[in-house]
């Protein structure tokens, strides 16, 4: 567990309430012409959580879990279908365009693919000056100094400023992406798989940079990842998504020591470790995740769950609090606790 014990840490900066995003409800011409009923994909299904100021919340899920859509909904890069997102007490969803632009200064995003996240035709200086000028962060005269400051903050050499993105390695590009996000002096950052496309030996550099920035600038971060080991190192709390639903959320130490959802346990068992002595006999989990277009009724996980009963097939389990700050969406979370250790 990381120390996030400043007084402000108790106050939630981001509150997400029943957030839902459905895709596939096509409008326009096909609707007018009465095209056959569209299949709907519920990418994010009534997700609620809070992130305290100065906290790093890790959000883990496999492909199709809706984690990327959720992150984009928080910044309204994708318009949610229903639900609420409050930032510092203010409702983001009802903001007008102009107010949203102001709000965007407070919330930024770091992207997964350092190769597609930077405009290939702009030097780093052009990219950062555009941000600084657009949001009138500082006077024109102060821009070069501010750029130097930003580059230093993310650990890049000053000579980086006048080069194009193609001259940088993956890890350096990721640092540039972080500098761009920091240019507007945000309070909240959504980091969508920030290290999954970066070389293994450089991943730790980026993870440590995120931690440093949180400590130095008091940033609040939502870290989206598919890799449990990454969130373990960086997050204060961890949430697990499965087919659009939040199935478990708890402080990091808690969720790794005593995961209560069978899916979280399976994820932990399945993750390969650099340990030549570990050869679990059984596969972590059988079967494939169901299609998000046609999720199973009841608990989405029942098709793969070793604990599933008839109840799980018909009744969606509620998110229940099992201990302080630890919530789990499973009818059998007591049995899950008795499950053999995830290792």
């Amino acid at each position: 567990m990381r120390d996030a014990g400043q007084p402000s840490a108790l106050r939630p900066l981001v509150e997400v309430d029943d957030l839902t995003k459905r895709f596939g409800a096509r409008g326009g011409l096909s609707q007018i012409l009465g095209a056959a009923s569209q299949r709907q994909l519920t990418a994010v299904d009534a997700v609620s959580f809070q992130i305290n100021a100065g906290e790093i919340l890790g959000l883990v899920g496999e492909s199709g879990s809706g984690k990327t859509t959720l992150g984009r909904c928080l910044l309204r890069l994708v318009e949610p279908s229903s639900g609420q997102v409050r930032f510092d007490g203010k409702d983001l969803i009802s903001l007008s365009k102009g107010d949203l632009r102001v709000a965007r200064r407070q919330m930024q995003m770091i992207f997964q693919d350092p190769y597609s996240a930077l405009n290939p035709r702009m030097t780093i200086r052009q990219m950062l000056s555009e941000v600084l000028r657009f949001h009138r962060i500082c006077t024109d005269a102060a821009i070069p100094a501010r750029i130097a400051e930003l580059l230093a903050l993310v650990g890049l050499d000053q000579s980086a400023a006048d080069r194009l993105p193609r001259h940088f390695s993956g890890g350096q590009r990721q640092r540039i992406g972080i500098a761009r996000a920091l240019a507007v002096e945000p309070r909240f950052i959504v980091a969508d798989e920030p290290v999954s496309a970066v070389d293994v030996s450089v991943q730790a550099q980026i993870m440590n940079l995120l931690l440093d920035l949180r400590d130095q600038l008091g940033l609040t971060i939502l870290l989206i990842a598919h890799d449990l080991s990454v969130v373990r190192y960086v997050s204060d709390r961890v949430g697990v998504l499965y087919l659009g639903r939040l199935v478990e959320i708890a402080p990091t130490a808690q969720i790794f020591a005593a995961p209560r959802h069978p899916y979280t346990q399976a994820l932990l068992r399945a993750a390969p470790r650099p340990d030549p002595d570990r050869h679990p006999a059984q596969p972590a989990i059988a079967g494939e995740p169901p299609s998000p277009l046609n999720p199973p009724p009841g608990c989405h996980f029942h098709t793969r769950c070793p604990l599933a009963t008839a109840r799980c097939k018909s009744e969606m389990p509620p998110l229940q609090t099992v201990s302080d700050g630890h919530q789990v969406r499973c009818h059998h979370h007591d049995l899950a606790l008795l499950n053999p250790s995830p290792r």
Binding site: V200, S201, A204, Q205
Partner: peptide
């Protein structure tokens, strides 16, 4: 040694320890 040192381990209780990255780039 550096690689093994800088990949996050799932089974170790990490506390507030930081990873030790390999500096520089490939």
């Amino acid at each position: 040694m550096g690689l093994l040192n800088c990949v996050p381990h799932l089974d170790r209780d990490v506390g507030t320890a930081r990873l030790r990255p390999i500096p520089g780039a490939p």
